[in-house]
């Protein structure tokens, strides 16, 4: 008889805060604009300060509103962007597949995010790794899918995808995957939810299957 009482709220309008991180010029702003307004401006400005856009996305019949925060990629602007990490639900770690350096910096971005977003140590945070500019000529590519997946494995990140803001490939999918990933972790967290303690102990071990986009993924 308690079944109705315990029902989950229908969260068709859950607001999720998404931050897109990555080196300058990897295409963060382009990704956001492609996703939000389906436009690509080759000559868009580099980002100064912070900008954000809202966009609804439907996953499994439920609508989520993504509040997407786009920041400047240069390391020096750290003090400006880090205050916005707090309260994020999803973090997109972005590099460009034709820029090895941006890929190497993923670690830095991840660490910076974890530090400033105040994510609890043992909590699985929904990261998604994005390799942008998948449209570039094969001979421009500097980072392979395998490298990306290896890095994700090493960092216990279970979602990764290659996208192109330019030709729109996988952009919707990237955001959808991110939300699904968030949902899975959220559901798991929910089971452990305890209303009045301020420390929520989440399952530390990750066990679910990885996202489909990682074809060659091995199990964790």
């Amino acid at each position: 008889m308690g079944s109705r009482v315990n029902m989950r709220p229908t969260s068709k309008n859950t607001l999720l805060k998404v931050v897109i991180l990555g080196d300058g010029g990897v295409g963060k702003s382009c990704l956001m604009n492609r996703f939000v307004s389906n436009q690509f401006d080759e000559h868009s400005f580099h980002t100064i300060g912070v900008e954000f856009l809202n966009k609804d996305i439907e996953i499994d019949g439920e609508t989520y509103t993504l509040q997407i925060w786009d920041t400047a990629g240069q390391e020096r602007f750290k003090t400006l962007r880090t205050p916005f990490y707090r309260g994020s639900d999803i973090c997109m770690l972005t590099y460009a597949i034709d820029d090895k350096h941006s890929f190497r910096n993923l670690q830095m971005w991840k660490n910076e995010f974890l530090y400033y977003a105040d994510v609890k140590e043992n909590v699985q945070f929904p990261f998604i790794v994005i390799g942008n500019k998948s449209d570039v000529e094969a001979n421009e590519r500097e980072v392979s899918q395998v490298e990306m997946e290896t890095w994700c494995n090493e960092n216990a990140i279970s979602a990764c995808i290659e996208t192109s803001a330019k030709n729109a490939s996988n952009v919707q999918e990237a955001f959808a995957t991110a939300v699904q990933h968030w949902l899975r972790l959220e559901n798991r967290a929910d089971k452990n939810e305890c209303l009045y303690t301020d420390t929520v102990d989440l399952t530390k071990k990750q066990s679910e299957n990885r996202t489909s986009c990682c074809i060659n993924a091995s199990d964790e």
Binding site: V5, N6, M7, R8, P9, T10, S11, K12, N13, L15, G87, L195
Partner: peptide, 30 residues
């Protein structure tokens, strides 16, 4: 009571993050 509390919490949190709660919000229904 716990269920009410949970939903109250949900609604209140919603109001914090969103400045107002939509009447059709799922959490209101819950």
């Amino acid at each position: 009571i716990a269920a009410v509390k949970k939903e109250v919490k949900q609604v209140m949190e919603e109001s914090v993050t969103r400045k107002f709660v939509h009447e059709e919000s799922g959490s209101v229904t819950s």
